[in-house]
């Protein structure tokens, strides 16, 4: 994740389990206040407020805007190139660059490009598809897609310590704390 992981740690991190969102958010805030940076939360559904606690920037919207504008330009260029330059046809005496008629194809390419950017951009920023991730090594992690909430503190964090971090997490009242092997 970062250059801080140069000293190879024996494990990937610690995973603390919670039964509800509120203790998870509280724990994430506490970990953040303690100075941890390399951490992540896992939940069966979106949890409001967590991204702010973790502190990162979401660039999906900007990407989609760029995708949409590209789509619009591609749509217009296609219509213009075909109808004016490559294959001009006189349709009822209309000008070759009859842009009002091009609005519909332009609109559709705008939506198409923006939508493709939204989905594939989201996947790319999330680093998916990702067949392997160390958290899957924890058997209890199956519950992350069912009814449990997890807080991970990665060993790549500069403040990470095999003993102290575990103690710290235990103080945050989790249901369990698991070691996440690499």
């Amino acid at each position: 994740m970062s250059s801080a992981s140069e000293n190879i740690q024996p494990i990937y991190g610690y995973l603390a389990e919670y039964s509800d969102t509120e203790p998870l958010i509280a724990a994430a805030k506490a970990a953040r206040a303690e100075g941890f940076q390399m951490m992540e939360c896992y939940s069966p559904m979106p949890v409001h407020g967590l991204p702010e606690v973790l502190g990162y920037k979401n660039n999906v919207a900007l990407l989609v805007l760029v995708g949409g504008i590209t789509g619009m330009l591609v749509g217009f260029s296609l219509c213009y190139w075909v109808s004016v330059l490559q294959y001009p046809l006189n349709i009822g005496g209309r000008p070759f660059n009859s842009w009002p008629a091009f609005v519909v194809p332009m609109f559709e390419t705008t939506i198409l490009f923006a939508s493709l950017t939204a989905v594939f951009g989201m996947l790319a920023l999330n680093g998916l598809p990702q067949p392997y991730h160390p958290v899957f090594n924890v058997p209890r992690f199956d519950e992350a897609t069912r009814s449990r909430f997890f807080l991970l503190i990665a060993s790549s964090d500069p403040k990470f310590d095999m003993v102290k971090t575990r103690e710290f997490l235990t103080r945050l009242a989790p249901l369990s704390v698991d070691e996440v092997p690499h």
Binding site: P44, P51, L54, N58, A61, A114, A118, P129, Q130, H133
Partner: peptide, 27 residues
């Protein structure tokens, strides 16, 4: 595709869903 419900993933996912909904409506 390796979805694991990470908070950062959910956040981008929700933005993408919302934008797709916004794009699909005029579509």
């Amino acid at each position: 595709m390796g979805w694991r419900g990470a908070a950062r993933h959910w956040d981008r996912y929700e933005t993408a869903s919302l934008l797709l909904a916004g794009l699909s409506t005029p579509l």
